[in-house]
Amino acid sequence: IEEVKKIVSEIQSKQLTRITINGNTYQVNSPEELVEYVRKVFS
C-alpha cells in the first residue's frame, strides 16, 4: 500500500495522463480515476 501511495503522489505531482500498471497503459483524466484503476489492480 505504501508503494501505491508513492506512485499516486508521483503521478499527481507530475500531472501524468497515462499510467502503466502490469504492462497495461491506462488513460487517466483525474486523480479520482487513477485511484479507481489502482483499486482494481490491487484489490
Score class of each variant (00 low, 15 high):
Ile1Arg: 09
Ile1Gly: 10
Ile1Tyr: 13
Ile1Asn: 11
Ile1Asp: 14
Ile1Met: 12
Ile1Val: 11
Ile1Trp: 14
Ile1Ala: 13
Ile1Gln: 11
Glu2Asp: 12
Glu2Tyr: 09
Glu2Pro: 06
Glu2Ser: 09
Glu2Asn: 09
Glu2Val: 10
Glu2Leu: 10
Glu3Ile: 14
Glu3Met: 14
Glu3Tyr: 14
Glu3Val: 12
Glu3Asp: 12
Glu3Ala: 13
Val4Trp: 14
Val4Ser: 05
Val4Lys: 03
Val4Cys: 15
Val4Gln: 07
Val4Tyr: 14
Val4Glu: 09
Val4Asn: 02
Val4Gly: 02
Lys5Phe: 12
Lys5Tyr: 13
Lys5Gln: 13
Lys5Val: 10
Lys5Ala: 14
Lys5Cys: 15
Lys5Ile: 10
Lys5Arg: 12
Lys5Leu: 14
Lys5Trp: 14
Lys5His: 13
Lys5Glu: 15
Lys5Asn: 13
Lys5Ser: 13
Lys6Tyr: 08
Lys6Gly: 06
Lys6Leu: 11
Lys6Asn: 08
Lys6Gln: 09
Lys6Thr: 07
Lys6Ile: 08
Lys6Pro: 03
Lys6Ser: 09
Ile7Lys: 02
Ile7Asn: 02
Ile7His: 03
Ile7Trp: 12
Ile7Arg: 01
Ile7Met: 07
Ile7Glu: 03
Ile7Thr: 03
Val8Met: 08
Val8Gln: 02
Val8Arg: 05
Val8Pro: 01
Val8Cys: 07
Val8Asp: 02
Val8Ile: 15
Ser9Arg: 12
Ser9Asp: 13
Ser9Thr: 10
Ser9Glu: 12
Ser9Ala: 14
Ser9Pro: 00
Ser9Asn: 13
Ser9Ile: 11
Ser9Gln: 15
Ser9Phe: 13
Ser9Val: 10
Ser9Gly: 09
Ser9His: 13
Ser9Cys: 12
Glu10Val: 10
Glu10Trp: 12
Glu10Tyr: 13
Glu10Asn: 05
Glu10Ser: 04
Glu10Ile: 12
Glu10Met: 11
Glu10Cys: 14
Glu10Leu: 12
Ile11Met: 04
Ile11Cys: 04
Ile11Asn: 02
Ile11Lys: 02
Ile11Val: 03
Ile11His: 02
Ile11Ala: 02
Ile11Phe: 01
Gln12Val: 13
Gln12Trp: 14
Gln12Asp: 03
Gln12Met: 15
Gln12Ile: 15
Gln12Lys: 11
Gln12His: 10
Gln12Glu: 11
Gln12Arg: 15
Ser13Cys: 11
Ser13Asp: 13
Ser13His: 12
Ser13Thr: 12
Ser13Trp: 07
Ser13Leu: 11
Lys14Trp: 13
Lys14Ile: 05
Lys14Phe: 06
Lys14Met: 14
Lys14Arg: 07
Lys14Val: 04
Lys14Ala: 06
Lys14Cys: 13
Lys14Leu: 12
Lys14Glu: 05
Lys14Thr: 06
Gln15Gly: 13
Gln15Ala: 12
Gln15Ile: 06
Gln15Asn: 09
Gln15Cys: 11
Leu16Val: 07
Leu16Asn: 02
Leu16Gly: 08
Leu16Phe: 07
Leu16Lys: 07
Leu16Pro: 03
Leu16Met: 05
Leu16Trp: 05
Leu16His: 03
Thr17Lys: 07
Thr17Leu: 06
Thr17Asn: 06
Thr17Pro: 01
Thr17Ile: 10
Thr17Glu: 02
Thr17Gln: 03
Thr17Val: 10
Thr17Met: 06
Thr17Cys: 11
Arg18Ser: 14
Arg18Asn: 09
Arg18His: 10
Arg18Ala: 13
Arg18Glu: 13
Arg18Tyr: 09
Arg18Ile: 14
Arg18Lys: 13
Ile19Trp: 06
Ile19Gln: 00
Ile19Leu: 07
Ile19Val: 10
Ile19Ser: 00
Ile19Asn: 00
Ile19His: 00
Ile19Pro: 14
Ile19Thr: 01
Ile19Cys: 05
Ile19Lys: 00
Thr20Cys: 11
Thr20Ile: 10
Thr20Glu: 09
Thr20Ser: 05
Thr20Asp: 04
Thr20Met: 04
Ile21Asn: 00
Ile21Glu: 00
Ile21Leu: 11
Ile21Ala: 00
Ile21Phe: 08
Ile21Met: 03
Ile21Thr: 00
Ile21Gln: 00
Asn22Gln: 06
Asn22Ser: 05
Asn22Phe: 09
Asn22Val: 02
Asn22Thr: 02
Asn22Lys: 08
Asn22Pro: 02
Gly23Trp: 12
Gly23Glu: 02
Gly23Asn: 05
Gly23Asp: 12
Gly23Ile: 03
Gly23Arg: 01
Gly23Ala: 02
Gly23His: 03
Gly23Ser: 04
Gly23Leu: 03
Gly23Pro: 15
Gly23Phe: 05
Asn24Lys: 14
Asn24Tyr: 14
Asn24Trp: 11
Asn24Glu: 10
Asn24Ser: 11
Asn24His: 14
Asn24Asp: 07
Asn24Arg: 14
Asn24Pro: 00
Asn24Gln: 14
Thr25His: 11
Thr25Asp: 06
Thr25Met: 15
Thr25Lys: 03
Thr25Gln: 06
Thr25Cys: 13
Thr25Leu: 10
Tyr26Glu: 01
Tyr26Ser: 01
Tyr26Pro: 00
Tyr26Met: 07
Tyr26Gly: 00
Tyr26Cys: 07
Tyr26Ala: 04
Tyr26Arg: 01
Tyr26Lys: 04
Gln27Cys: 12
Gln27Ser: 12
Gln27Asn: 07
Gln27Thr: 10
Gln27Pro: 00
Gln27Phe: 15
Gln27Trp: 07
Gln27Ala: 12
Gln27Glu: 12
Val28Leu: 14
Val28Pro: 01
Val28Asp: 13
Val28Thr: 14
Val28Met: 15
Val28Asn: 11
Val28Ile: 08
Val28His: 15
Val28Gln: 15
Val28Trp: 09
Val28Lys: 15
Asn29Glu: 10
Asn29Tyr: 13
Asn29Phe: 06
Asn29Ser: 15
Asn29His: 07
Asn29Arg: 07
Asn29Gly: 15
Asn29Gln: 10
Asn29Lys: 08
Asn29Pro: 11
Asn29Leu: 13
Asn29Trp: 06
Ser30Leu: 06
Ser30Lys: 05
Ser30Arg: 05
Ser30Gly: 02
Ser30Asn: 11
Ser30Val: 04
Ser30Trp: 05
Ser30Glu: 04
Ser30Pro: 05
Ser30Cys: 04
Ser30Ala: 04
Pro31Ser: 09
Pro31Ala: 06
Pro31Leu: 08
Pro31Cys: 09
Pro31Phe: 09
Pro31Ile: 07
Pro31Gln: 01
Glu32Asp: 09
Glu32Val: 04
Glu32Gly: 07
Glu32Thr: 06
Glu32Pro: 03
Glu32Tyr: 06
Glu32Trp: 09
Glu32Lys: 05
Glu32Phe: 07
Glu32Leu: 05
Glu33Cys: 08
Glu33Leu: 10
Glu33Ile: 03
Glu33Ala: 08
Glu33Gln: 11
Glu33Val: 03
Glu33Trp: 04
Glu33Pro: 00
Glu33Phe: 07
Glu33Gly: 07
Leu34Ile: 01
Leu34Ser: 00
Leu34Cys: 02
Leu34Thr: 00
Leu34Phe: 02
Leu34Asn: 00
Leu34Met: 02
Leu34Gly: 00
Leu34Tyr: 06
Leu34Ala: 01
Leu34Gln: 00
Leu34Glu: 00
Leu34His: 00
Val35Thr: 05
Val35Tyr: 04
Val35Cys: 02
Val35Ser: 05
Val35Trp: 06
Val35Ile: 14
Val35Pro: 01
Val35Gly: 01
Val35Asp: 01
Glu36Lys: 07
Glu36Ile: 05
Glu36Met: 08
Glu36Asn: 06
Glu36Leu: 06
Glu36Gln: 06
Glu36Pro: 00
Glu36Asp: 10
Glu36Val: 09
Glu36Phe: 09
Tyr37Pro: 00
Tyr37Ser: 05
Tyr37Ala: 10
Tyr37Arg: 08
Tyr37Met: 15
Tyr37Glu: 08
Tyr37Cys: 12
Tyr37Val: 15
Tyr37Trp: 13
Tyr37Phe: 14
Tyr37Gln: 10
Val38Phe: 04
Val38Trp: 03
Val38Gln: 00
Val38His: 01
Val38Asn: 00
Val38Ala: 02
Val38Met: 06
Val38Ser: 00
Val38Ile: 13
Arg39Thr: 11
Arg39Ser: 05
Arg39Asn: 08
Arg39Val: 11
Arg39His: 13
Arg39Gln: 13
Arg39Cys: 11
Arg39Gly: 04
Arg39Tyr: 14
Arg39Met: 15
Arg39Phe: 13
Lys40Asp: 07
Lys40Met: 11
Lys40Trp: 13
Lys40Glu: 08
Lys40Arg: 11
Lys40Ile: 10
Lys40His: 12
Lys40Ala: 09
Lys40Pro: 01
Lys40Ser: 11
Lys40Thr: 07
Lys40Leu: 11
Val41Leu: 15
Val41Asn: 07
Val41Cys: 06
Val41Ile: 14
Val41Asp: 02
Val41Gln: 07
Val41Pro: 00
Val41Glu: 08
Val41Gly: 03
Val41His: 13
Phe42Gln: 01
Phe42Lys: 00
Phe42Leu: 11
Phe42Val: 03
Phe42Pro: 00
Phe42Gly: 01
Phe42Ile: 04
Ser43Asn: 11
Ser43Gln: 12
Ser43Met: 12
Ser43Tyr: 09
Ser43Lys: 10
Ser43Val: 09
Ser43Ala: 13
Ser43Phe: 13
Ser43Trp: 10
Ser43Leu: 13
